[in-house]
Write a protein that binds this DNA or RNA. Structure first.
Lengths: 333, 333
DNA sequence: CTGTTAGCGCTTTCAA
DNA sequence: TTGAAAGCGCTAACAG
């Protein structure tokens, strides 16, 4: 079927070594043979079998990315940025889905290792990383993105979740808000934990009291955001300002608001982590915390490439990127 | 570093063939040797080198997916569904980004072929598929999703873009709307073309006149939707009903509306192809056309798996899935 | 400048 | 039930 290097060699009347050299741009090859070989390559519609090449060279020029969710704008924007950066260095990206399961995460990582990826970027599915220990022994470079891991030490690129949240709450309190609700993600996940911590810090620092029946937690999905906003608004004395820990919950929560306008107290305002194109369109969003999504990806890629070059065998580096407050001047409704 | 099958064999005092058999569940192996081998596998933290295995077996149990955009909810939902389906059969998904470029698409496809994927799902970047001809010669099964291709024949899973659009327009006309604007994607892309065709058909069938300075086209991105909505509303006599050809343009267009409320005529309404979680939240959306995203992915996977099983060497099958009209009872603003 | 050759890690006949 | 050995397609010494 697919023609091999040997086929090309025969057609061109040279050795396989020569063909290989031509393919790899070895300079000491006659222009004559080079063109002859390349002609045969074209004629036979030859493509290298990178499987075979990788088996020999022990390099794949592929880096793996494992993400807890594939249909997730935030993660995919990170992936996109990773790809852009690594492609500059000639690497390809292979994306795998851990489906928010630690077990699947392990499988995906093993799959990728079996495929001999040269490096790995991991957006962890859970807080625990002990199942990844084997990675260090094989010394495959790994960089974490977005979330931190316990029991596994490597480079990581994160944002400053706590201070980003603090900043938003400070702003809102200064603007006169004092009846806060909170809709957060699973506290075992570092981002969710840090954001909640930042929230609480800000609240207490401003001398407000923590009103924990107004604080709801769940996974980070749209439906959950919807449900939790419902819970909040059906309380006797609902908050008038709700901080939402992430984008998809924000979307869900807003769906609830749109469908239940009558339940929404006057002056109601939502602030949320993550600023996406849609945050600007979604009602009730007064304030969002923008993460440097692209930078997360490109920095993660950068750290990984450095590790892969073998340079800087330093101890794990954890980079915290800054968030940015975005004010939305939505007209009241 | 990583231990090999040979290492395991030595430790267990057996041949590599035996280890291989144990690993592959060959039944005619003593329980004794099996356990001994497996113990060594664990001790040495052995993982198969699938690269080597694939070189030998010419199978990778991987299928490739090439998408024009990676940070795109619609495509990724398709990808997600593909993955779910193929995983049932033990296959893994490798996602690559063609970045809406035919040249890159070719490269990604070649990359994937070089990696010996067992099959390919392609969401084409452009209308032309002549650069994919080599695929048929290598007889790697390929299934197209979402968009059709010229100059390359294979199975495809699409939705009925024209009739979906027609249905929506019919509904709107029956509801008394008659001043339509249209914001569409690049007409070289089959989905955009079909939707526009459906629109025009419906308009003329209803006896309305085509008012083509109210019809704007561009790529299918948020910014473009924003800009085109701007163009429409700054016309002397703007339409009061705008049909938008896809989700991201819908988002962009809505951003424009939200920021320029004063320009929005009373009774203004937007209808759009694609129904996402967010459509329900976005203002001005009266009607959306839901695509069976999950089904697109799972059917594409199904067709591919069938081809890969080598069965049914039938001629190319093109499946058109039906869309569904979704009415949004958004309160007026 | 080009050819010969060994071997990457695995599977798989063929023999025993 | 297990082992020996060939070979998948490629690269990289080492020769020449």
């Amino acid at each position: 079927m697919a023609s091999t290097l040997k086929d090309v060699a025969q057609h061109a009347g040279v050795s396989t070594a020569t063909v290989s050299r031509v393919l790899n741009g070895d300079p000491r090859i006659t222009e004559a043979t080079r063109t002859r070989v390349l002609k045969c390559v074209r004629q036979l519609d030859y493509t290298v079998n990178t499987i075979a090449r990788s088996l020999k060279t022990a390099r794949t020029f592929t880096i793996g990315l494992v993400t807890p969710e594939i249909a997730n704008d935030f993660f995919m924007k990170v992936a996109q940025a990773v790809e852009v950066r690594i492609r500059e260095d000639g690497y390809n990206l292979m994306i795998c889905n851990s489906n928010e399961s630690i077990a699947e995460e392990r499988h995906r990582v093993e799959l990728l290792l079996g495929k001999c990826v040269d490096g790995l970027i991991l957006i962890p599915a859970g807080p625990d990383g002990t199942h990844l220990r084997s990675l260090s022994e094989r010394n495959v470079p790994v960089v974490l993105a977005d979330r931190l891991l316990q029991g596994f030490q490597t480079d990581a690129v994160l944002v400053d979740n706590a201070s980003g949240t603090r900043q938003a709450i400070d702003y809102l309190v200064d603007a006169g808000r004092d009846r806060f609700g909170f809709i957060g993600g699973d506290l075992r996940i570092t981002t969710a934990k840090e954001r909640y911590a930042g929230f609480c810090e800000a609240i207490t620092a401003k001398g407000l009291t923590v009103h924990s029946d107004h604080y709801k937690f769940g996974d980070f999905h749209t439906e959950t955001g919807y449900a939790l906003m419902g819970e909040l608004l059906s309380e006797e004395n609902p908050p008038d300002t709700v901080f939402i820990s992430n984008y998809y919950m924000h979307v869900g929560a807003t769906q609830y608001l749109v469908r239940h306008r009558d339940l929404v107290p006057p002056g109601f305002l939502v602030a949320s982590f993550d600023d996406m194109e849609l945050s600007r369109v979604v009602g009730y969003a007064g304030l969002t915390i923008a993460q440097p999504v692209t930078e997360i990806g490109s920095r993660a890629a950068e750290l990984l490439l450095e590790r892969m070059r073998g340079r800087k065998p330093t101890s794990p580096r954890i980079e915290r990127l800054r968030t940015r407050l975005v004010h939305h001047h939505v007209s009241a409704r």
